[in-house]
Design a protein around this nucleic acid. Structure first.
Lengths: 216, 216
DNA sequence: ATGTCTTTGTGAACGTGTGCACAAAGATGC
DNA sequence: GCATCTTTGTGCACACGTTCACAAAGACAT
């Protein structure tokens, strides 16, 4: 029986082995003392807990560059996601295959959702259309939405929304990049609107995450 | 002078006002007691701390659907990013404009980086090409990389890499979706490879983040 | 069977981030 | 000038996640 120890896994993943064991214990995963974890059972158990063993039909609304990129993205299928339908508002797109799946028109959105039993929707439309699409998805029975449009969606209770901002990661990189460059020369501080320049060093935690609030 | 109180900002952002004030104090931002924060100065100060006042030239390597979507993404410009160049390995793409910017061939990668003083690179290539592109970017002087390819990149010390996995957010939604559905009926537990079924409830924190390790 | 050796599972310590609560600071009115 | 009122800045306590350290469990050799 192929096994693996928490120490090996921890080294491979770059995390602490105790944390890993504790996580596994929360999952109810029991290893064998002196041996380790049964690889096959462990994989199955984690997969099930994460929902990888289920088939999740999803629809992608808005088949622009991003929607097409998502439709072609290989990582979905291997994680249990199945692109049940592609939907776009442009009549010229209708019927055209993207990633081997014919694009359908927005008019049929509700029927598509219901026929396929879809509970997860992906919005890749322009910002202006996102809220309306969201409402139609929710009304048709979708309870989880992944939003790539640069808008905050408002949804009723019981519906989960996760917003993906493609520029936020770039923002974080730039933040660190600025820190790297700022080590030798202190902040240049050009012509800001401030009357006085404040000091106080502004050091944050070593992780360097961005603050909770940032301007649009 | 238009001002805003921490209480107003906190309500708008949905966070605690004390946390917000503490964050601002770390930034060296002084408000006026009894009044609040000078909006204009606050915006400027946060923008500068986050690096929004700087011009960050970036290159995007791999102009497929995703690369094109990124090139067209409006959120970059407003956050101080400027797409300095688009690079692709396909000679047929060379010269073709995407988002108004002509695509250049990979052969000229090093020259493009150096000429534009680029320190941030975006990789949107297939997984197979990512590591090689990464190495060329780093060798040419790039010190921050945003990786959309489904591969782990290895880089020398001093280079930051952030990996964006487009399916991880979907994964998290599915995880919550599974929890929603699992409330009424306990886990179905089909034909797993396990000999015995373990219990122990497996409750995680209320935030419901995914564990540190997951199978590929 | 007994001892040794490996690795798990977990109690306890530690560090970090969040929220409360209040003194201090400044504005405003009289 | 003094009192009052608002809002900041921050000490303190609490909660949560991470890491350490070790007893218990089991495998394996003799």
């Amino acid at each position: 029986m192929p096994t693996v120890s928490s120490e090996e896994l921890a080294a491979a993943a770059g995390v602490n082995s105790a944390k890993l064991r504790k996580d596994f214990s929360y999952l109810g995963s029991y290893g064998t003392r002196g041996v380790g974890y049964d690889v096959e059972y462990l994989v199955y158990q984690i997969s099930r807990e994460l929902g990888l063993t289920q088939d999740w039909p999803v629809v992608i609304v808005g088949i622009g560059n991003l929607g097409a990129a998502l439709a072609n993205y290989g990582g979905f299928a291997s994680r249990g996601f199945r692109v049940a339908a592609l939907i776009d508002a442009d009549p010229a797109m209708a019927g055209k295959p993207v990633a081997g799946i014919p694009v359908q028109h927005t008019d049929d959105l509700e029927k598509i959702i219901e026929d396929n039993g879809v509970s997860i929707g992906v919005i890749a439309t322009p910002a202006g259309a996102a809220q309306q699409v969201c409402e139609r998805l929710v009304a048709a029975g979708v309870t989880s939405i992944l939003n790539f449009a640069p808008t905050v969606l408002s949804v009723p209770d019981g519906v989960d929304v996760r917003k993906v901002d493609l520029s936020i990661e770039l923002q974080i990189l730039a933040f660190h990049e600025q820190r790297k460059a700022g080590e030798e020369a202190a902040s240049p501080d050009g012509a800001g609107p401030a009357s006085a320049t404040r000091s106080k060093s502004a050091d944050k935690g070593p992780d360097g995450d961005v603050p909770a609030v940032m301007p649009a």
